[in-house]
Design a protein around this nucleic acid. Structure first.
Length: 568
RNA sequence: GAGCCGGUAGCUCAGUCGGCAGAGCAACGGACUUUUAAUCCGUGGGUCGCGGGUUCGACUCCCGCCCGGCUCACCA
């Protein structure tokens, strides 16, 4: 804690001004901005302006340009402009932190450019001295002597405040100067106006310090870069780094739109146990915990699958759950020990119905969050316009190796040799199923860039999927691949309890042969199947990975608010 | 778990060959009533991740440990 701030807090306490219980706000910051700032639809325009200030970003420059009369806006530009020079800039009109901004701006010759005033008149409305009260964290302060400017911020946006000695009075002005720091949370009451440069601003008539920050804020220009601070103290990341905040707002709207879509399609949202007696439904190592009263070990679920299918047995024909799964495995850029999955099940559908449905679901999420089906990921385009390409599992392997399905399923030693030649680690000790999986991984997965379905997996990889109607070696299963990563996994569900028991037994044999991730037998689930589960299809979608793709980030930690880290 | 890279002021980062620990922002004092990465003048601020070792002398070289990043292995 910083000593000067503690001393200020002490004085606030003496004046009985510290930590008030309530401050009435008339708007959220983002609300008042959207009331007076119209959406821009990215129209291409040319604007005339004088360059006032240039700031370098990682990629290009952000430029403040001004009209002759001093009205200002921003421009994002890749070319280096000269301060003080007048340019005509052509670009797409948008907003950056609420301010009008010309994106992809390029200097051009144009005999009929707009004035900044024209754009402002169109998109930025006159607040007409509306009386409002707002609160937020004070993130910048610019003292001019007898007047002070600053910005208040919350997750919805930021807004400028203007504190004038004449207006707030001698004593309040002195209090502000002596007791308020950047980082404090303050409430203001006053009139909305626009400054000479055109920025929406609260002319403060009175203010209250609501909460003192006892630590200085991260640096305003560079933000917080240290990932240890960003992940362990995510609140600082959210305050200081606009990009980080945007990712989590995006994540929230993705999850919201998934719910909207599924609810509209007649699905029922349910919650199933996270503490389970049997860790099954996926191939993974579980976390083990202990329940004192029950006097037994429980597992944190590795998947909700077997419980959701029990609900289909119970007559809930369309169910879904969005929730955490827990897997006691490595941590890296695509794996966090707890991660969020959407799983849904539909009675009387098969996996082909699910492919069509997946295309509709993804389309809905993309259009309602990022607003387009074509996005850039890692410098390459991803086009989610349906239909996605569909490839049969063994066709992909045949293309790469010239070998047919029989080779992979029957010639274990030949397969083992192929795996070794491909450099698959521990090829000598892997089980048959693992070998196929690894070989597919090495040969094919990275190349599945555009969204595509891989379908008809070998049965030995899929203990819960129904045998293929045309080929007893296969199951009716598909995975959706995007950017070389598995994004969704789905199949026609195995609903024959006798066959399901055999498949579990096969898994137990795999476990004995050294596959630690082979599935556990779930007798209670088989009992449920014995009562009869209708023909059903089910699917799981990794929410974290979906958000990674939409946010164009390559680490799962960027889309999880508090990712798993070692205790410091 | 292995290999490589990193940890220096509240934040972002420099620190040469082993020779007094640096800048910008933030903070503190002062000027400034439409500024906006405000500007101008001045001041203070360090367990150089932790612990050993080498050396007259270590942020710097060596060893061990902690934390993180990337790559790999396991996994979605």
């Amino acid at each position: 804690m910083e000593r000067s701030r503690l001393e200020k807090l002490q004085r606030l306490k003496e004046k009985n001004l510290a930590y008030p219980h309530k401050f009435q706000v008339s708007y959220e910051i983002g609300q008042i901005r959207s009331k007076y700032e119209k959406p821009t639809d990215r129209k291409e325009v040319s604007v005339k302006g004088i360059v006032k200030r240039i700031s370098k970003l990682e990629d290009g420059y952000i430029v403040r340009i001004s009209s002759k009369a001093g009205i200002e806006m921003l421009a994002m530009c890749n070319e280096e402009l000269k301060t003080g020079e007048e340019y005509i800039l052509k670009g797409n009109i948008g907003r950056y932190e609420g301010k009008l901004c010309l994106f992809s701006a390029k200097p051009v010759e144009d005999d009929n450019p707009l004035e900044i005033e024209n754009l402002k008149a169109e998109y930025d409305l006159d607040p007409n001295f509306e009386e409002i009260s707002l609160a937020g964290r004070l993130i910048t302060l610019r003292s001019m002597g007898k007047a002070i400017f600053g910005h208040l911020q919350d997750a919805s946006g930021k807004i400028q405040i203007y504190i004038k000695k004449d207006i707030v009075g001698e004593e309040a002005f002195k209090d502000f100067e002596e007791l308020v720091d950047t980082g404090d949370i303050i409430g203001v009451r006053g009139k909305l106006f626009r400054t000479n440069t055109g920025e929406l601003t609260v002319e403060v008539e009175s203010f209250n310090l609501l909460t003192k920050s006892l630590h200085p804020m991260p640096e305003k220009w560079h933000g917080v870069k240290d990932v240890e601070v960003r992940y362990r103290q995510r609140y600082l990341d959210l305050i200081a780094n606009e990009e980080a905040k945007k990712i989590f707002l995006l994540r929230s709207s993705v999850v919201g739109e998934l719910r909207n879509f599924l609810n509209r399609e007649g699905f029922l949202e349910v919650e199933t146990p996270i503490l389970q007696h049997v860790a099954s439904g996926a191939n993974a190592k579980p976390f083990i915990t202990y329940h004192n009263y029950l006097e037994q070990n429980l597992y944190l679920r590795i998947a909700p699958e077997l419980y959701l299918k029990r609900l289909v047995v119970g007559g809930f024909n369309k169910v879904y759950e969005i929730g955490k799964n827990f897997r006691n495995e490595g941590v890296d850029t695509t794996h966090n020990p707890e991660f969020t999955m959407l799983e849904f099940y539909v009675a009387y559908w098969d996996y082909k119905d699910l492919m069509d449905f997946t295309e509709r679901l993804i389309s809905h999420v993309l259009l309602s969050t990022v607003g387009t089906l074509k996005i850039n990921y890692r410098e390459k385009e991803l086009d989610f316009t349906p239909p996605y390409k569909r490839y049969a599992y063994f066709d992909l392997l045949y293309e790469k190796t010239g070998k047919e399905k029989e080779f992979f399923l029957k010639d274990l030693e030949g397969l083992r040799k192929l795996a070794k030649d491909l450099g698959v680690p521990n090829a000598d000790s892997l089980t048959h199923a693992k070998l196929i999986d690894k070989v597919f991984d090495v040969l094919v997965e990275d190349e599945l860039w555009g969204p595509c379905f891989v379908l008809d997996f070998p049965k030995i990889l899929s203990p819960l999927a129904k045998t293929h109607r045309q080929d007893a070696d296969l199951v009716e299963r598909f995975e959706l691949f995007v950017a070389g990563k598995e994004l969704a996994n789905a199949y026609t569900e195995l609903n024959d309890p006798l066959e399901q028991r055999e498949r579990f037994l096969e898994q137990l044999r795999e476990k004995e042969m050294g596959d630690e991730e082979a599935m556990q037998m779930d007798e209670d689930f088989i009992t449920a199947l014995e009562y009869g589960m209708p023909p059903t299809a089910g699917e799981g979608i990794g929410i974290d990975r979906l958000v990674m793709i939409l946010a164009n980030v390559d680490s799962i930690r960027e889309v999880i608010l508090f990712p798993a880290l070692r205790r410091f």
